[in-house]
Design a protein around this nucleic acid. Structure first.
Ligand SMILES: [Zn+2]
Ligand SMILES: [Zn+2]
Ligand SMILES: [Zn+2]
Ligand SMILES: [Zn+2]
Lengths: 142, 142
DNA sequence: CCTGTATCTACAGTCGCTGTAGAATAGGGG
DNA sequence: CCCCTATTCTACAGCGACTGTAGATACAGG
């Protein structure tokens, strides 16, 4: 049986994060010692490892919750699992596209500025006016 | 003189966002009507446009605050402006690198799954064990 | 003057944690 | 067996950058 700190170390998680996962119901309420401290077994270790690795791959906690639910039905088709992963892939690709547009604009405005005075800094001119941009980088968040 | 809703429409901002910018001190407190409603002039319109465009290019509000401060000293060298933009570029490039690693892993795990049963879904296997990954996608956030 | 839209303040909620305070517990050394 | 320190406990606030809500008030057109 593992104390929460041991579980944290083994999975590269902060202790508070584990408690947070319990609070939002993505980790189960574990057994407790007489004094009220959480004790974990191997099942919880595996589950937390799954959550952390999925987070590292960019899945939202909601998506991970679905994935965990699905993996409890081993006989089922994995079509839904695949759909979640495909959504995640499309999301990542959309972010990349957006960031590449940003990179191009940033690169260009930096290149055009020869470190003059603020009054005629190309970077500030571009920031003042999207008309100076070449791409349609606008849209959503970073 | 523009009401807040007009300013919002002209800059593609939500009304609450403008009030939020005022609250955190990145937009000035504007004049008010007798009844207490905010009224804006062209200077504020320009400032808000600068903020919004910079946000679209991924700059943090803190960075934007610095940029706005710097652009108030037209005679100064723009070296600091350039440094902020370079930081932003490096940040964007780091995000792209990370997202491309994620994209590769996601793409691979999706390709390896032929939509079988959950019990032997490659996607779930990879999520359970980072050892199945080829790249070191771990690190920071998305 | 009336009505409907816009604006006002204040506050809660989003996502995924992270940090803090103050109290209680666990476990090892003497 | 006692003590001490490290760990854990609960509860809550804060991050960044907004977004949404409720209930009250102001403005503008007809
Ligand atoms: Zn410059
Ligand atoms: Zn632009
Ligand atoms: Zn599958
Ligand atoms: Zn991995």
């Amino acid at each position: 049986m593992l104390a929460i700190g041991t579980l944290a170390k083994r999975t590269g998680t902060k202790v508070q994060t584990i408690r947070y996962y319990e609070e939002i119901g993505i980790m189960p309420e574990p057994g407790r010692t007489e004094g009220g401290q959480r004790r974990y077994g191997d099942a919880e270790l595996d589950r937390l490892a799954f959550i952390r690795h999925s987070r590292q791959l960019g899945f939202s906690l909601d998506a991970i919750r679905e994935l965990l639910d699905l993996s409890d039905s081993p006989g089922r088709s994995c079509a839904e699992v695949d759909a979640i992963a495909q959504r995640q892939l499309r999301d990542v690709e959309a972010r990349i596209d957006r960031l590449e547009a940003l990179r191009a604009e940033l690169h260009r405005m930096i290149a055009e500025c020869g470190s003059n005075r603020v009054a005629d800094c190309r970077i500030l001119q571009v920031l003042r006016d999207h008309g100076e941009c070449l791409s349609d980088h606008a849209k959503a968040e970073t």
